[in-house]
Every structure is written in C-alpha cells, then in structure tokens.
Design a protein around this nucleic acid. Structure first.
Lengths: 192, 192
DNA sequence: GTCTATAATCTGATAGAC
DNA sequence: GTCTATCAGATTATAGAC
C-alpha cells in the first residue's frame, strides 16, 4: 500500500492517518502502522520518535486538509443559509465518522496535550467560522435578529458530529442524513 | 473500590462499566478491570468467559439505566416542548461524555455484533421516543404541522452526542451547553 | 537510512491446586 | 469460588551492525 508514495516518512504518515481514523490512537500499534506503510522498524524510529510523534504529525495533516475542505464550502458562493446547508449536506462517508471528532473519544489523545491541542484548535476554528457565516446571514436578514451565532454554530457542528454517532450505532448512513435534514429544516423554518 | 458491593460479579461489572466509559473497549484490559474491582484473575474467569462477556453485561446494565433515566424525563409532566427541553438540558457531566455513545467510536465494539447490538437498540429506542414526543407536540399545535418527527428526533439526539464531542475537544463543558441551547432556541422559534 | 536482535512489560487467556 | 503458575503473542521501544 502507498507504493505510489516515494517518501518513506510520507507513507508512514498516511498509514497513521488512516489507522487513527479507523481505530483511534489506543486502537493502533506501531507494528500495524509499519505493516500498512510497508516500512521497517528501523526506518520508522529514524524518521519519528515513536507512536505519539507519528500521531501528532498525522493529526496536523488531517486538520489542515479539513480546514481547506470546510473553507471551500463556507467561503464559497451563495447566501449564508446556502453555505451552511452545503456544509451540513457535504458529501461524507457517515459510517467512517469524522477523522478529527473521533479523537475526542480517545483516552490516549485526550490525555496528551500535544495530541489534543490540534483537535481543540480544529473545532475552535470550525465553530468560529460557522458563527461568522451565521452572523452574516443574520445581518443580511436571512435569520431572525435574535438568533445567537455562537450557539447556533455549536449546534450545527454538534449535529454533524452526533450524526456520525447515530449512523455508526445503526450501522446505517441514513441516520446521519436524518439528523442533518432535521437541522436544515429548523434553520429554514427560522429563516422564513 | 466497590468494597460496598458484596457480590464479586457485581464489582466486576461496575468496574467494567466505568472503564468502558472512561477508556472504551480497546482501551481497557482485564487486568485493569480486576485491579479496580479488587478481584483476582481466577474469580473473574469463573464468573465471566472473558473481556467481551464482561463488556456485554456492563453495556446491558448501562443501557437499561439510561432508558430509565430518559423515560423519566420524556414521559414526565409538561408539554412536549418542555419534556424535550428537559431532555436536552438534563444534568450531565459533559466532559465524561455518553457511556453508550462513546462506544460507537470503538473498533472493538463496532466489530462485535454482540457488543454493537445493545448500542444500536439504545439509540433506536431513544430516537423512537423522541419522535413520539415531537409528534405529540405537533398534534397539539406546539410545533408547525410540517415538522418531521423522525428527522427532528435524530437532530435532537445528534446535538447531545455531538455536544459531548465539542466539550471534550475544548475540554470545557460550556461547549456542550452552547450546542444544546442553540437547539432549544431553534425549537422554541419553530413553536412560535 | 535501513536492517536485525534484544528486551521489559502487557494482553487475554488456560490449567490445575486449594 | 478463589488462588497461583504458565503461556503465546503483542506492545513499544533501544542498540548496534550494515
């Protein structure tokens, strides 16, 4: 796997990113990371200090990618309502869950400030950007004046993260869609 | 710990319940379960077949307790709006997260039908009951006729589960409250 | 940079004595 | 019912040769 990636460190990082998503920090081992990257033990400990170092690098890369993806939607064309709806309805594999959000349930991540830090920053950034768009919509008269941007932003982010939980529990992506559409409908009703 | 519990099996179950909540299935080991319960290895393998058996028993007990707690709120007094708000604002240690919801992020639970089953049933039950109350509120004129009970129920359950994710990411219970209050405000606006 | 060897500890059990 | 002994394999590295 990852044979298309020439760089050894790069293959290790991609392997770690996938495993963090699939199994979390406590659920993955250096051995499995190396096997998936097709990299020997000596190479791994040459490029990284260990499991935590690899995880930190992988989390940073995933967070950066997510910021770019979300920015494209929230700063794209359309009204505030349209951009928020685009974020909510964004194409997702609901059964995979959120590669950053799942880390909040991981005792190994929560216990290590170096690992929790990027997760914290990511959600802080997300909520700020959602709140900004909600505020824009409110100022343009799309939403009621009384709508609180911060709370609404937190609700939107929570519905997405919770939607993954429902989908995984039911082993059915439809549960995610139901939650998202429930939120879209309430926001639309509020706008009208 | 658990010295007040006379029964050995009971102490093992309580220990497992706590560890599943704190560390998840892949993050806990029989050794730690036994140490916390102050029970020897021989006793543990006498009462249970192993880690999975213990976890199954612990999850069932936690799910039963949660059903009772939620029923008390949803089937209690008050309008539909009041009961749903009571569920959303229910006293919680947001930084602890949901003892059932966190299991959906656990590869060891998701991979084992015996362990995922009770989690699936719990959320199915929760969504059905929330949908029933939303439906009652709609029929009584508390909510707009166009409000979809199933989607709204999924949204409510998702906001709670996602609220835990935000709180853990920020290491601050306030994030949970923000998400919940965002949902309460949207539901209230819908009612008006 | 990559390889193999080594190691202390943990994991999740089984076996059999008491 | 509870105890200790034992076990094969995983975990998370370090050491030193190549």
């Amino acid at each position: 796997m990852y044979s298309y990636l020439v760089d050894t460190a790069d293959r290790l990082i991609e392997s770690t990113r996938e495993l963090l998503w699939e199994r979390g920090y406590v659920g993955m081992s250096p051995k499995v990371i190396m096997a998936r990257a097709d990299v020997g033990q000596g190479s791994m400990y040459h490029h990284f200090r260990g499991k935590a170092d690899l995880a930190r690098t992988a989390i940073d890369r995933t967070a950066a990618q997510m910021r770019a993806d979300v920015s494209a939607l929230l700063d794209g064309p359309g009204t505030a309502t349209e951009r928020i709806t685009a974020y909510l309805r964004r194409d997702r594999d609901a059964l995979m869950g959120c590669p950053i959000g799942r880390l909040t349930q991981d005792p190994g991540v929560v216990a290590d400030p170096d690992l929790r830090g990027p997760v914290d920053e990511m959600f802080r950034w997300l909520r700020e950007n959602l709140a900004r768009v909600v505020g824009e919509g409110r100022d343009r008269g799309e939403f009621d004046e009384t709508l609180d941007p911060d709370r609404t932003a937190a609700m939107i982010a929570a519905v997405v993260q919770g939607g993954y939980v429902l989908a995984k529990a039911a082993n059915d992506p439809e549960a995610f869609d139901q939650a998202v559409e429930g939120a879209v409908a309430l926001l639309a009703a509020q706008a009208g």
